[in-house]
Nucleic acid binder design. Structure first.
Lengths: 361, 361
DNA sequence: TTGTACGCGTTATCAA
DNA sequence: TTGATAACGCGTACAA
């Protein structure tokens, strides 16, 4: 209950001035070792906790942060991260943080390079980036390391030991979960498909991880100890993966219709991106026993979820990804907090029945 | 980006002193009307935004908050709200907020009355309360209103127009969701049960709401437009509710065994409290087609979820309830923000496969 | 009715 | 290597 301990108190107890305590506190040097030790001891004894309010007021610093992500007007998914980033920016404004967002066209590598270059040239104090292009991102990471600019990755996981943090979803686990959602409660044997729509799978790590998780779910059903569930022998499930082009291509309808008509035992489809809504219309024309699972609470997806064509959507908390991503930078730069190297956000299972809590929350 | 506008800037532009601007800003009176108007105009023109950092530092006020909730050592559920409240308290400490928690024995009304009385006598600046006892809470609300003490309700919803906010779950909707989770994918007709364990249903609003939601889920299946799903006619489902005593009573096992053995077509059980783990052991001894759904990520529940006996758990975000509950008070008292009168937290659907993201997050 | 001056806890800039 | 002191932006006595 004692009043909060201030620098002044430590100074008095150690018979030095506040200036000296401050130098010890921030390792600014220029202080005799024995004095340093005494001050540190007093800090321990009094359990000093710095007052962040006063600190930010006194420091009167400003931090310029840059965020690099796909343009939210070109792809609806990216609206949510954009919102999250700006929400965080508003809250952090009073701590002297300003934000500039660099948006790139996610279908064009040159656009990414251009915006990342612009961000770098602005010499920000920290960078938040959704590195959709694996190969093209690495050189920037290296450059930022040399310039000592802390950077945080979000949404797309790239192994990088030097990044302050990765904030995003666990793609492998989400594929695993999708398997469960498709198979759960299905009494009969049959086929499950994973569909990739317009993805450059080679240069996209997380799509591969999703497929691996998906297949592993069915593989582990084979394990003997699976509790008391009456599922058919796992060998009865066939898993197949299908690559679809952009939906505007004629071969999209062609390939999809072929799948739906040829695979008589098709029990479910897992769409590895947020574009489940492009497949949904085709299902209404076919036997409705085919269960559809996809990602993200886009307006189009929500429509089919409510209609019943989409059974479940996996929410990757995109808004929170942006929000916590920017906060990770602030924690590092402003609040000098420990920042977790890895922050997975929950994979929310969304059905028609709990949808309302996730839209506009 | 022009420098942040300060009170001093307004004062200069309006040819008055900072004291006058301050009085206008906080409606302290004692300022000529024409001067007041001029100052207000300047504030608009310069788009003045108060610096909360400097404000809290300057004001140097302290706020004593009281939280009233069931003892977390007597019932494991209440550990999470307790954690959330304390997490918020730690963050808010630097804004001059101190917290005292008053814990009551949720099985004893007199304990509740005692602690609520203690909290009231401490004359706090704000109160956060989980009002499990409906009737007994109302007089306290009245008293707090008279004393002008703002109070926030959490976890248990009680209609009260005067409360600053209610933070918690939508009980009706969670029952509805539970219906879906039990029925989903079940091809055959049968019976679904909702089990209440050791609950005083008459004095507990949210248990009633859960049951209503649960029954309504099956009722709405009767509606004609339900999309393309191959469920049997809704009349084929029988819904029954069962009241169980505390599990230490002999009649607990008796009643439960009776249910399991007599209801040959029992497809699922929905436990309306966090005590699904008390029913789970009985299921392993019976035909495993009975699906079990309950609430909350208690250690015991998690055990049976991983084992497969419990199919889904609905997470009511108890930790967040405490966290945001306390923040609602801080927003009102310290930050002078608008506080939403109602804040529903998400109903997370937890399966074995996405569990990991919700424990210790 | 208005203005002045000090304090909040910290940082940063000088002298010493 | 130290210590005194002016900011930072705002709240609040108290004086005018």
């Amino acid at each position: 209950m004692a009043k909060n301990v201030r620098i002044k108190d430590i100074a008095a107890k150690a018979n030095v001035s506040v200036g000296t305590v401050d130098r010890v506190l921030h390792n600014r040097g220029r202080v005799a070792e024995d004095v340093r030790q005494k001050v540190l001891l007093m800090m321990k004894e009094l359990e000093y906790e710095p007052n962040m309010i006063a600190r930010t007021l006194g420091a009167n610093r400003t931090y310029r942060l840059a965020a690099i992500q796909p343009n939210h007007t070109l792809d609806p998914y990216w609206q949510a991260p954009w919102d999250g980033i700006h929400k965080a920016a508003r809250e952090l404004q009073q701590y002297g943080i300003t934000l500039t967002v660099y948006s790139y066209d996610m279908t064009r590598v040159d656009s990414f390079l251009e915006q990342a270059e612009l961000a770098t040239q602005s010499e920000p104090h920290g960078i938040l980036i959704a590195p959709l292009f694996y190969r093209e991102s690495l050189p920037f990471f290296k450059q930022w390391q040399q310039q000592q600019i802390p950077y945080v990755l979000f949404n797309s996981y790239i192994t990088d030991i030097e990044a302050v943090s990765y904030v995003g979803q666990d793609s492998y686990q989400s594929g695993f979960l999708a398997g469960k959602l498709l198979q759960f409660g299905q009494a009969q044997a049959g086929t499950f498909a994973i569909a990739h729509i317009a993805e450059d799978i080679a240069n996209s790590v997380h799509i591969t991880q999703k497929e691996r998780g998906f297949r592993d779910y069915f593989a582990q059903l084979a394990a003997p100890q699976n509790g008391p569930n009456k599922t058919p022998a796992p060998s009865l499930y066939t898993i197949l993966s299908i690559d679809l082009p952009h939906s505007r291509e004629p071969s999209f309808a062609q390939k999809l219709t072929h799948l739906l008509e040829q695979e008589k035992e098709l029990l479910g489809i897992f769409v590895s991106t947020s574009k489940a809504y492009e497949i949904a219309p085709y299902l209404t024309q076919h036997p409705s026993t085919i269960r559809l699972v996809g990602y993200d609470l886009l307006e189009e997806n929500i429509h089919f979820l409510n209609e019943g064509t989409i059974a479940f959507l996996i929410n990757q908390n995109p808004k929170e990804q942006g929000y916590y991503g920017l906060y990770a930078l602030a924690d590092q730069l402003v609040f000098k907090k420990e920042v977790a190297a890895l922050k997975y956000l929950p994979l929310d299972v969304i059905a028609k029945e709990n949808l309302q809590y996730y839209v506009e929350k």
